[in-house]
């Protein structure tokens, strides 16, 4: 299923496909006449953690923004089957950006903000905020201005803020790129907890060992094309293209 390049499923049938989180059908995207994504076709399953890999400028962040609905495809379609859990919230997809966008408020106020937008009661907000702070190991920073946190702490806060919304899909754009091993471990642990609670995780990383550690399936992007999408073990054994092999080996090819 993961390997399928041309999905045959019809759009209305899509709604019934319980195991699909995101499906791209012939999705193309350009900016200023420059084609950045070429006829992408893929299906990302609801289960587990999908890792997106690929060289700088491959189009990974754009791909993620499309899933989040922040960019609209120029042509083609993106299907995200509605989730029918009773936890239906205002935004069912959360995204943590490559550079976290934090509000000019305290750490806890940053988390409380998104919960307030979802219309929770004061009591619920207080409870969820303190739980989230514990999970992100930021309890002792709760009252600090968010922008005074270190880069790693900021990333952890952005992560906690995204998780607390309880979305069914969580998108991470190099969420651990600048983190030390300890912070990376905390973030991976947060990802793991969310995943086990049923959240679909899609994350971008350049860290091959992290991909092996955390990922279930790997989607390899190169120059706006999907060159591979397979289970982790299969991908690392047989990357399937000269480009992917070169990327993994740290070689430059043109």
């Amino acid at each position: 299923m993961l390997d399928r390049v041309e999905p045959q499923i019809q759009s209305d049938a899509m709604q019934q496909a319980p195991d699909i989180a995101v499906s791209f059908r012939n999705v193309e995207f350009s900016i200023d006449g420059k084609r950045l994504l070429h006829k992408l076709n893929c299906e990302i399953g609801k289960a587990g953690k999908t890792v997106i890999m690929g060289p700088n400028g491959a189009g990974k962040s754009i791909f993620l923004r499309m899933i989040a609905g922040l960019l609209k495809p120029e042509s083609g379609e993106i299907f995200i089957p509605p989730n029918d859990s009773e936890q239906q919230r205002s935004a069912d997809i959360s995204i943590v950006f490559q550079n976290p966008v934090l509000l000019r408020r305290s750490v806890s106020a940053n988390i409380a903000y998104v919960l307030k937008q979802q219309g929770h009661s004061k009591k619920t907000i207080a409870r969820l905020v303190s739980e989230a702070l514990v999970q992100a190991k930021l309890e002792d920073r709760a009252q600090m201005p968010a922008r005074q946190l270190s880069g790693g702490e900021q990333q952890r806060l952005a992560m906690a803020r995204a998780l607390v919304m309880g979305s069914s899909i969580l998108l991470l754009d190099e969420a651990t790129a600048n983190l030390d091993p300890a912070s990376t471990f905390i973030v991976e642990e947060m990802v793991d907890v969310a995943s086990r609670a049923g959240t679909k995780i899609i994350f971008i990383t350049h860290d091959v060992r992290q991909a092996k550690r955390v990922g279930d399936d790997i989607l390899f992007l190169h120059k706006g094309r999907i060159l591979a999408h397979k289970p982790k073990d299969a991908f690392f054994k047989e990357p399937g293209s000269e480009e992917a092999q070169a990327y993994l080996d740290g070689r430059v090819i043109e």
Binding site: L70, S90, I95, V101, L103, Y113, Q117
Partner: peptide, 20 residues
Amino acid sequence: REYDEFFRSLRLTSLAKIKT
């Protein structure tokens, strides 16, 4: 400009954006 994508990812209404 700085908050645009964050706001949109939260599906904020214009009024909520203004307040924020």
